[in-house]
Simulated assay, not measured.
Amino acid sequence: MKYYYDLHLHSCLSPCGSEDMTPANLAAMCALAGLEIVALTDHNTTGNCAPFCRAAAGHGLLALAGMELCTQEDIHVVCLFPSPEAALPFEDYVSAHLPQIPNKRDLFGPQIRMGDEDQILGEDDRFLAGSTDIPIYEVSGLVAEFGGVAVPAHIDRPSYSLLGVLGLWDPDLRFATAELSHNCPPDFSQRPDLAGLRLITSSDAHYLEQVWGAEHSMDLPDRTPQAVLDWLSGKVP
Results as ranks from 00 to 15, higher is better:
residue 1 M to F: 10
residue 5 Y to W: 06
residue 6 D to Y: 06
residue 11 S to E: 10
residue 16 C to Y: 11
residue 25 N to K: 02
residue 27 A to L: 11
residue 42 D to H: 04
residue 44 N to L: 04
residue 51 P to T: 13
residue 59 H to M: 00
residue 65 A to I: 15
residue 66 G to L: 12
residue 69 L to P: 11
residue 74 D to V: 12
residue 86 A to S: 11
residue 90 F to Q: 02
residue 93 Y to V: 01
residue 96 A to M: 12
residue 97 H to G: 12
residue 99 P to G: 03
residue 100 Q to W: 05
residue 104 K to C: 11
residue 108 F to Y: 14
residue 119 Q to F: 09
residue 119 Q to V: 00
residue 120 I to D: 02
residue 121 L to P: 03
residue 126 R to K: 07
residue 126 R to N: 08
residue 128 L to D: 12
residue 129 A to M: 09
residue 139 V to Q: 10
residue 141 G to R: 15
residue 144 A to V: 10
residue 145 E to I: 06
residue 145 E to H: 12
residue 150 A to M: 08
residue 156 D to N: 14
residue 156 D to K: 00
residue 156 D to W: 08
residue 158 P to E: 02
residue 163 L to W: 03
residue 167 G to R: 11
residue 170 D to Y: 06
residue 172 D to W: 01
residue 173 L to N: 10
residue 173 L to Q: 13
residue 175 F to M: 06
residue 181 S to F: 07
residue 182 H to K: 09
residue 185 P to R: 00
residue 189 S to F: 04
residue 191 R to N: 04
residue 204 D to L: 04
residue 209 E to F: 07
residue 209 E to H: 08
residue 210 Q to T: 10
residue 211 V to K: 02
residue 215 E to V: 06
residue 216 H to P: 00
residue 217 S to V: 00
residue 219 D to H: 05
residue 220 L to N: 06
residue 223 R to N: 03
residue 223 R to T: 02
residue 225 P to G: 13
residue 226 Q to S: 08
residue 234 G to K: 05
residue 235 K to C: 00
